[in-house]
């Protein structure tokens, strides 16, 4: 396979899987890390990179800033579950959301830290002063949710933390 072919393959894979990160590219395309690194450099602005929480995610250039942030976090199964729950039920107090999603409060808070930080979810106080979780841009988030598919190792790590958090919760 020529260099141009490999480069086109990487660009196409990023376009199909916006938000894909480096080790996934290496694994899914069955290339050497050095090769991927070299071609990503050569691709220049045909692929956009963003560092989020210690991982470099890659996007096609037509992804806007909100999409880039959302795709990075919706990759996590539990974060996606929380978003789906909020899409179904609308603004919900945090404690009810934890129960509704079926996760420990510590799991919910860990994912919320990121969801709030990346402007997908807002914490507002309702008229009784309780913290209520509200989706910032529900329609766009729902559309993006349909495009992400977490890999098996990602799912397993996510479920492992869910289980451990639940076992350790008081």
């Amino acid at each position: 396979m020529t260099d141009t072919d490999t480069r086109a393959r990487i660009a196409a894979h990023v376009a199909d899987n916006p938000g894909v990160y480096f080790s996934e590219l290496v694994r899914q395309l069955d290339l050497a890390p050095g090769q991927v690194q070299y071609h990503l450099r050569k691709l220049g602005d045909r692929v956009v990179a963003a560092d989020l929480y210690g991982r470099t995610h890659y996007y096609p250039p037509d992804c806007d800033a909100f999409e880039r942030r959302a795709l990075a976090v919706l990759h996590r199964e539990t974060a996606a579950d929380i978003v789906v729950f909020l899409l179904r039920t609308g603004p919900t107090p945090a404690a009810e959301a934890a129960e509704g999603v079926g996760v420990a409060r510590s799991t919910l808070e860990w994912h919320l830290d990121r969801l709030v930080d990346l402007d997908l979810v807002a914490k507002r106080r309702d008229e009784r002063g309780r913290v209520t979780l509200v989706l910032e841009r529900p329609e766009e988030t729902a559309r993006l949710l349909r495009t992400v598919e977490p890999s098996l190792p990602e799912r397993l790590v996510d479920r492992f933390t869910r289980l451990v958090d639940r076992l350790l919760a008081e």
Partner: peptide, 11 residues
Amino acid sequence: SAAPSAPEEPL
């Protein structure tokens, strides 16, 4: 102590 504290004092 590892669980993140979520202070939610009702106003």
